[in-house]
């Protein structure tokens, strides 16, 4: 309990009721407890505690190198955690991953891969299709509808390298829709996209919310946070503050997140990394 109090104290007024939440809230689609993540012994996230509210659009915001992508990758098991626990609806990730959808960063794949936009979206259906079976007409149809929802139906047969960056991002979004999940993680979906794509993504986010889904988005544009999102996590190697945008997205908290107050934390991280590599 001590740790929780500390976290909420750091978070400021917006989160003061978090300390009263039970440790394992099975209601929350995502609960992170005391999670620390390190790359090559260099800590990038310290002691993160967070409970995501249901059916909200949640932005993860913070400066470069704050560990935004790392946070969701650690939740999904893509990078290993040094310590801490992550639960989804009070359960282990393995039990519930069919309820989780994921939009990776666009740069994480080679877009000169010989597949069409529709092929990529169909990948979102693979786990429903199962091992060793081809994509049936029905799944192809669902995938086409997902492309339609992001305004890309006309590009279904286009080779993915021939799409613009924004269109590629929409294909990734459509693939996540094809997963038919309840909780979505999106890694920088708005990075470097055109206005039409931005509108399409926002529309999809709102539609997902109206269908009762929860979406956690790594976001870099502070200006649009209040317009697009309900909740926000302010991150800079630790959770500076989290909660509803209207409570947490304050000048003071932003200053804490982006201001130069964290030098001690990052210096400590550097020192750990140096010691680790020196020992080698």
């Amino acid at each position: 309990m001590k740790r929780r109090t500390k976290a909420s104290a750091a978070a400021g007024s917006g989160q003061s009721n978090l300390a009263e939440l039970p440790e394992h809230s099975s209601d929350s689609p995502l609960s992170i407890h005391a999670m620390t993540v390190a790359y090559d012994k260099k800590p990038v996230l310290w002691d993160v505690d967070y409970d995501a509210p249901r059916n909200r659009l949640i932005a993860i915001v913070g400066p470069n190198g704050a560990g935004k992508s790392t946070l969701i990758k650690a939740c999904l098991g893509l990078v290993s955690r040094a310590s801490g626990e992550v639960e989804f609806w009070g359960e282990n990730y393995r039990e519930v991953r069919s309820r989780i959808g994921y939009v990776p960063q666009r740069e994480s794949v080679d877009w000169d891969f010989p597949v069409s936009a529709l092929d990529v979206v169909c990948m979102g259906r693979y786990r429903r299709i199962g091992w060793c079976r081809p994509v049936s007409k029905r799944h192809r149809q669902v995938s086409l509808e997902c492309l339609e929802r992001v305004g890309m139906r006309d590009y279904a047969n286009r080779q993915i390298s021939q799409l613009s960056g924004g269109q590629q991002q929409r294909v990734f979004l459509a693939r996540a829709l094809a997963q038919e999940a309840e909780l979505y993680f999106m890694d920088e979906p708005f990075a470097g996209v055109d206005a039409a794509t931005e509108r399409a993504i926002v529309e999809v986010l709102r539609e997902l919310k109206s269908r009762g889904k929860t979406v956690i988005v790594v976001h870099h544009d502070l200006q649009t946070v209040p317009e697009y999102f309900d909740d926000v996590i302010l991150l800079n190697m630790r959770v500076v503050a989290s909660g509803p945008v209207e409570d947490v997205f304050t000048r003071d908290n932003l200053h804490k997140t982006y201001g130069g107050r964290l030098t001690l934390l990052s210096e400590a991280a550097e020192a750990v990394a140096r010691a680790a590599s020196g020992r080698k």
């Binding site: 990758k73 098991g77 991953r97 990948m123």
Partner: peptide, 9 residues
């Protein structure tokens, strides 16, 4: 094509 997606999936 996308091993991280596959793992999450």
């Amino acid at each position: 094509f996308n091993d991280s997606f596959a793992r999450v999936d």
